[in-house]
Design a protein around this nucleic acid. Structure first.
Lengths: 126, 126
DNA sequence: AAATTTAATGCAACTAAATTGCATTAGCAA
DNA sequence: TTGCTAATGCAATTTAGTTGCATTAAATTT
């Protein structure tokens, strides 16, 4: 399993993630790629990239699915609990390289966390 | 504006929230109510209950919309940042009465946070 | 308690995200 | 260059959520 063939489509999507640290929504990516590949292909490429630990996914504050590349050091950023920040002004979403401290809750075994923060990013906040 | 009429449908939905602290997904609620009202009505009643500060909404780890009643003391639980816990075993979702500490990030103005935790709840974890 | 007003509902049609089945295409190894 | 099959394109489908409009039923007034 995993990525077996380096197709043009795959390279094109991969390029998007390698050129920028920013997260991108599936909807946006499909639109960006619409002249080059089918939306089904985008979905399937994202699945493969995720399986390979190259990107991770999360749900934005609107419930839509977003993807971002995993940071270089941890190739399994899908399992850790770094938060995602959504700028309410420009719409950009970025991974924050910090760890949110989840307090121990009695009687609960917490194994994962998804944290979506929203506000104004540095570019929009002079 | 707000809730003006106490209709049978509204009372029925309200009952669901008053009988239990558990959160419920819209999809589940529509199914529970399917013999009593239309799905459009469920959506609209949830909107009204939210406007009134009786319930709050959030997106579950699957991206679906969930609702839960606001705790009695704070009638604006929609604005605070309590986390929601999703049991991977039984599927139940509950509000956690704690505050997650979001660290200050340089250059970011954070105005809201949505925290979804997942793991095993007390009932499923003997 | 009948008449009136309009919030609330039901229903069908619609939008948009995501998935599936299947025929076709194109990596890549032999 | 050939053969295998992963990957793709495309159309159809599923599902969450929304919208417009005619009808119904709370609540208010007479």
């Amino acid at each position: 399993m995993g990525i077996i063939r380096k197709t043009k489509s795959l390279k094109r999507v991969l390029d998007t993630f390698q050129k920028s640290d920013a997260a991108i929504s599936v909807v946006q990516l499909i639109d960006n790629m619409k002249h080059h590949m089918n939306k089904t292909t985008v979905y399937r490429i994202l699945d493969r990239l995720k399986q390979e630990g190259i990107v991770h996914s999360f749900h934005g504050k609107d419930g839509l699915k977003w993807y971002a590349k995993c940071s270089d050091h941890s190739s399994h950023q899908n399992t850790d609990t770094h938060p995602h920040f959504h700028c309410n002004h420009c719409g950009a979403v970025e991974c924050l390289p910090i760890d949110i401290q989840i307090p121990d809750i009695p009687n609960l075994q917490i194994s994962s966390a998804e944290v979506i923060l929203a506000g104004i990013c540095s570019k929009c906040n002079p």
